[in-house]
Simulated scan of single mutants.
Amino acid sequence: MVSMAWPIIFVFPPPASVFVTAMSVISFAGLANAGFSEVRGKHLQYSKFRKNTSNQSDSQKSKQIYLSGRTGMQIAYTPAFLAGLTSLVFFPHNDAIRYLLLSSALTIHFLKRLLEVQFVHKYSGGMALDSAIPISLSYFMFTVTAIYAQHLTIIQGLPEPQIDLKYTGILLFLLGISGNFYHHYLLSRIRSSSSSSPSNSNSNDDKDYKIPRGGMFELVVCPHYLFEIIGFVGFSFISQTLYAFAFMAGSAFYLTGRSYATRRWYLSKFKHFPHNVKALIPYLY
């Protein structure tokens, strides 16, 4: 009795949907596995890891299709943004505040991403098409499934969780999206600067990269990932469905692995990289 009551305090009961149940398992398992792959050195090929083809055969390299960084990121985010916008326009559920908050937050999140792609991010390389497609599919399916799971809580009349986390979720979402944008902005300023010093510049092929400075970059190498995780926690608190929590946990695994790989990359490229700067969590990891 207690084991069944505990989750109901924080989340909606699972809806009667094989699709949502399957996507909860697939999303968590797929993202967690991608995180472990990052740690093992098998990276999704974008950003600084675009050139990492050491574990590919010559035939794989020759078949690889690369897009510009901007085009790749637009492909990654546009379907998810359109899914969120469609839910607001065609399936508004005006009497369901939680549904409206989730759909609005998802739409704003991916609109912000697209605006950053167009006006903030600086690109020194491309993005592999076979990385752009799974990223795009993952974000699209997350948006569609999260909204659909919320829709099911309404039409199936599922009881609200005893503890309402949606307003805490809004605060976490706003914190996450703001912190993520600020540190993306700092990265763009670093990348757009033409000057570099021997202590923080890379003299190898990746000459456009520098050791990030300012904000929480003084403590961790990937504060933008930390705030992205906070934003996904915000989504899960707004939604309070098992699917949203599953995707959030999987995303945290992936970004943890990606941040570990990023710190390892900086250590390999910059001999003066400060070892006290952690990967993701200040002072801890």
Results as ranks from 00 to 15, higher is better:
Leu85Glu: 00
Ile147Phe: 04
Leu82His: 03
Phe173Pro: 12
Leu137Gln: 10
Phe119Asp: 11
Ala80Asn: 04
Arg191Val: 06
Ile97Tyr: 00
Ser193Val: 03
His109Gln: 11
Asp130Ile: 08
Tyr139Cys: 13
Met127Asp: 05
Arg189Lys: 15
Leu186Tyr: 09
Leu158Pro: 02
Gly179Leu: 13
Leu165Trp: 10
Leu158Val: 12
Leu172Phe: 15
Thr86Gln: 04
Glu160Met: 08
Pro134Lys: 13
Lys112His: 09
Leu114Gly: 02
Ser87Gly: 14
Gln118Phe: 10
Ser192Pro: 07
Leu186Gln: 14
Lys122Phe: 09
Gln162His: 05
Arg191Phe: 05
Lys112Glu: 04
Arg98Pro: 02
Phe181Trp: 15
Leu187Gln: 12
Phe90Cys: 05
Leu100Glu: 12
Gln150His: 03
Phe119Pro: 02
Asn180Met: 06
Ile147Gln: 10
Arg191Thr: 08
Met127Trp: 03
Ala96Lys: 07
Leu101Gly: 02
Ala146Glu: 06
Ser136Leu: 05
Asp95Trp: 00
Met141Asp: 01
Ala105Asp: 11
Leu174Ala: 14
Leu85Asp: 05
Gly179Thr: 04
Ser188Val: 09
Leu88Ala: 03
Phe81Asn: 01
Ala128Gln: 12
Gly179Phe: 05
His184Asn: 15
Thr86Leu: 08
Leu114Pro: 02
Ile177Asp: 03
Ile133Cys: 06
His121Pro: 00
Leu101Tyr: 13
Leu102Glu: 07
Leu172Thr: 05
Thr143Arg: 12
His184Glu: 12
Ser103Trp: 02
Ser193Glu: 12
Ile135Met: 04
Thr143Phe: 12
Ala105Ser: 15
Leu85Lys: 01
Lys122Tyr: 08
Val144Glu: 09
Tyr139Val: 01
Glu160Tyr: 07
Ser136Glu: 03
His109Pro: 04
Leu129Arg: 10
Lys166Trp: 07
Asn94Asp: 04
Ile177Arg: 03
Ile163Ala: 14
Ser104Trp: 09
Lys112Phe: 06
Leu82Trp: 04
Ala146Val: 10
Ser194Asn: 15
Ile135Cys: 07
Leu106Gln: 07
His183Asp: 04
His183Arg: 01
Leu175Glu: 04
Gly176Ile: 00
Thr107Ile: 08
Val117His: 11
Arg191Ala: 13
Gly169Asn: 02
Ala128Ser: 15
Arg189Glu: 14
Tyr123Phe: 15
Ser103Thr: 15
Leu114His: 05
Thr168Asp: 05
Asp130Gly: 02
Met127Ala: 09
Pro92Met: 09
Phe91Leu: 14
Lys166Gly: 01
Tyr148Gln: 11
Ser194Ile: 11
His121Trp: 13
Ile147Trp: 05
His121Ala: 06
Lys112Ile: 02
Ser136Tyr: 08
Ser124Phe: 14
Val144Asn: 01
